[in-house]
């Protein structure tokens, strides 16, 4: 398969720091009953790389994301984070998950907790950070994603775009090694999509390793080092964003792009 480093466009100094493989999937297979949703997936994501995963609905993108922090188990193959295979259950798994940030399509903020408490819960309960220090860090993160003024509110009082930015802050508060985004803007009203994408572009610029399932071509072009195109549970092709969007090689990708372009 392709070496991710060769495929990386963008800032060459950033690419220089991207040496090590951070996330590695080898021969990963997953079934839901009869349905073969991940077919022998091989994928490497480098330190500091921003990878966009794109593909038709039902192609297995969410399952791929969820397998990386083991919200879904896999049937065969190996997934390594920073060289360590995913633990089975228990403490080791919880530790791994704390190192892998996840942002969901539907935000999933803790509905009974304020915005601030959403962000401090993990650091306090998982990392053992003192309450005051956790609050200070949370306020900085909320400020960074532009919702510091909403800290005392409950999630239900926020707009979708604000909620998703809080969800990003919540994930960042754990200082994850890698951030997973599963269609973070698909549930948003159009006018709120950019406020979330802007935050993600900013994170990409800071060198955070990101795996992003999205159909937002603007984001892919601006921030991604590499685009992976999935169909029917397989990685069909991968390329730099520029190459993929202007000159897709496979028929599946051409067909898919023609459909999303007409929208």
């Amino acid at each position: 398969m392709d070496d991710p480093i060769e495929n990386r466009g963008g800032d060459p100094t950033a690419a220089g720091a991207l040496g090590d493989v951070l996330v590695e999937l080898r021969h990963v297979n997953k079934h839901f009953g009869q349905l073969h949703v991940l077919r022998d997936i091989d994928l490497e994501v480098g330190q500091g790389e921003v990878l966009v995963v794109i593909g038709p609905s039902g192609s297995g993108k969410s399952t791929l994301c969820r397998a990386i922090n083991r919200l879904e188990t896999i049937d065969s193959g190996t997934i390594l984070i920073d060289g360590v295979p995913l633990p089975e259950e228990g403490k080791g798994l919880a530790k791994l998950r704390s190192d892998v940030g996840m942002v969901f399509q539907s935000f999933n903020l803790f509905a009974h907790k304020t915005v601030l408490d959403n962000v401090t819960l993990g650091p306090i309960k998982v990392r053992g950070v003192k309450r005051e220090a956790a609050r200070k860090q949370a306020m900085e993160l909320l400020d960074r994603v532009g919702v510091a003024d909403q800290a005392a509110k409950l999630p239900a009082q926020l707009s979708g775009g604000q909620q998703q930015r809080v969800a990003i802050a919540r994930a960042l508060a754990m200082h994850p090694k890698v951030m997973l985004f599963d269609e973070p803007t698909s549930a948003l009203d159009p006018e709120m999509i950019n406020e979330v994408l802007d935050v993600m572009v900013q994170l990409a610029g800071e060198g955070i390793t990101m795996i992003v399932v999205t159909h937002e071509m603007g984001f892919a072009r601006k921030a991604a080092h590499r685009v992976v195109f999935m169909a029917d549970g397989q990685i069909v092709e991968q390329a730099t964003p520029e190459e993929f969007f202007t000159n897709p090689r496979s028929e599946r990708a051409k067909d898919f792009l023609s459909k999303i372009l007409t929208h």
Partner: peptide
């Protein structure tokens, strides 16, 4: 189910997920 998944995703164990979230 998303509430429990978000809790597990930040590294809470299953007992913490249940009691805190």
């Amino acid at each position: 189910i998303g509430q429990a998944e978000a809790a597990r995703a930040i590294g809470l164990g299953s007992v913490q997920t249940l009691t805190l979230v």
